[in-house]
Design a protein around this nucleic acid. Structure first.
Lengths: 233, 233
DNA sequence: AACGGTATGATTTTCGAAAATATGGCCTGG
DNA sequence: CCAGGCCATATTTTCGAAAATCATACCGTT
């Protein structure tokens, strides 16, 4: 049969709702939809070509993830940003990520080591090929995410990994927020390399320390260069 | 005007969807809807008197909370239980709760102390009045939840509190799971009292230690008395 | 002119029908 | 008798219209 007769437009998941959830999440994280921006159904309907209820389902899911703010009877909007929220997300990330790194270093097997090494390798390749601002490169974003995921992938707790993933998304939105105003990326390549080495050599204390300062210094960077976007009243 | 003319049936939130989310969550936590039970729309439609899309929205939200399992194109079901999941939830709770207790003890003011003391007082009152199995008493459940919430309420992080609340719900479902098979509740009153005293006297290390064993021993209890429900294959 | 209430338009929220998809039984060929 | 494909039925998923709710401008009264 002809495969693309009408094509009920599904790219990510199997359901349209899951697909739209995915696309909306990406756009919010990338700040293509700005913080606080109202998410009106007319607009979304035209933009994503789905019906009210399907969109509503996607927005509800994102509200549970903390990327969307649901105001009952008054619609949805992109979750606001604030210095306080940035601090909370950063602290929570440190708490969780530190625990997961420790567990992964303790439990990780050969496959884990291979995953850490190879994801870092790919990340470095992309950085060499294209040394400009990495956050604008979708490939870099994916590789970066996969490296950090690989680091904690051997922790053994799907529950904590899910929490970690949500916090990572929320933090990435802040990184995008400041990306346009940051002068130059600092030496992330070196930091990633050091973290990898500490992890592979099973030096948990060092890895934890490096991860924590990696997370915190990134957040500090955001806080300074996106200050004008965070202190709004 | 006549207030209950037709009454569009809204008890909890302002929207029907939020109300149904709330009611469904309660029933799942209380195991009125058993783990793994399929959540078919016909049945839910009759039970909650809402339409497909409204129910779908509620189920999607609960899926994001980890209480419902969404199988694309094959509907929803109550999230399964397992020994592994119980361990993960318990470990995650310890990680988060310990951190929040520390912060609350450090930052808590007079109002915090009052909240901790008064919520414990109410809890003890209810336990005296009705010393049988407390999980069957909705008032005890609320009071118990409020005491534990009060303990961490001064932590200063809405983000971590939200994560904590989700984990608390998931753990409470396991407690209900074993409630019917547990011979007698152990001395929770004493444990709560000790935790309160450690917190109020700002003995963080002791409070942390007590909370951790409180959480872990409850989980151990569940693991033993609900063993036949956890080791299914 | 200021205030309060009301009508109007805009927007969200809910509904049940219709389309899409999965499930289970049946039939055929080996 | 079993395996594999096909049709019928059950169930989920999506849609756009209709109801409910909110926001705003208007009008009359003080």
């Amino acid at each position: 049969m002809p495969d693309s007769a009408i094509r009920p437009r599904k790219e990510f998941g199997k359901t349209i709702a899951a697909d739209i959830t995915h696309r909306l999440r990406e756009e919010i994280i990338a700040c293509a939809l700005a913080p606080n921006e109202p998410l009106r159904f007319d607009v979304l309907r035209e933009r994503f070509g789905a019906s009210f209820t399907t969109l509503r389902e996607a927005l509800t899911a994102l509200a549970a993830e903390g990327l969307v703010d649901a105001q009952e009877q008054r619609g949805f909007r992109v979750a606001p940003v604030s210095r306080q929220d940035l601090i909370e997300v950063t602290d929570a990330r440190v708490l969780v990520e530190v625990e997961l790194i420790r567990r992964s270093i303790e439990r990780g097997d050969d496959d884990w080591e291979i995953a850490v090494i190879s994801t870092l390798h790919r990340l470095k390749r992309i950085e060499q090929r294209d040394p400009e601002h990495p956050l604008r490169d979708p490939e870099w974003k994916i590789a970066h995410r996969q490296f950090h995921e690989a680091l904690v992938s051997a922790c053994g707790s799907a529950t904590l990994l899910a929490i970690r993933a949500e916090l990572f998304d929320r933090a990435e939105r802040y990184r995008h927020l400041s990306a346009n105003f940051r002068p130059r990326p600092r030496d992330k390549a070196g930091e990633h390399q050091a973290i990898m080495q500490a992890a592979i050599s099973r030096n948990a204390d060092l890895a934890v320390q490096l991860i924590e300062s990696h997370i915190r210094s990134t957040a500090d960077n955001v806080a300074t260069y996106a200050a004008h976007l965070l202190d709004t009243e």
